[in-house]
């Protein structure tokens, strides 16, 4: 595990740059991570999704699935792909300071 300075905050990250402690996350970090993922500015729609994911993960201990995001945030899957191109589940999880979606191996 390594540390990284994001938006002036020193945080723990894994080898792919995902925060390992969701409590170290803040909105400035989100904006910075979004830029790394090719999203220049986080709009209100982005925040709707991020806020939902943060709340859901605080409750369940894991980043929500795309289906859960769609039904919980009211943003359609199609729109999720427009907001967070090429792999929204992974991108949202990263920007929201949550773990990467993963399989068993």
């Amino acid at each position: 595990m390594t540390t990284k300075v994001i938006a002036g905050n020193t945080v723990d990250v894994n080898e792919e740059g995902f925060l390992t402690n969701p409590n170290e996350w803040n909105k400035e970090i989100a904006a910075e991570l979004a830029k790394e993922e090719g999203i220049d500015a986080l709009t209100e729609s982005h925040w709707t999704v991020i806020d939902f994911c943060r709340t859901s993960a605080a409750d369940s201990g894991k980043a929500p699935t795309l289906r859960a995001i769609t039904s919980g945030s009211g943003v359609s899957t199609k729109d999720l792909f427009k907001l967070f191109p090429k792999g929204p589940a992974k991108k949202v999880a990263k920007i929201s300071g949550l773990g990467k979606p993963e399989g068993c191996v």
């Binding site: 080898e15 795309l66 792999g87 589940a89 992974k90 990467k100 979606p101 993963e102 399989g103 068993c104 191996v105």
Partner: peptide, 16 residues
Amino acid sequence: TPLPGAFTKPIASKMI
């Protein structure tokens, strides 16, 4: 696959 890869866990990825 909808996952980021066939293998997503670091050690399994390294080994197999």
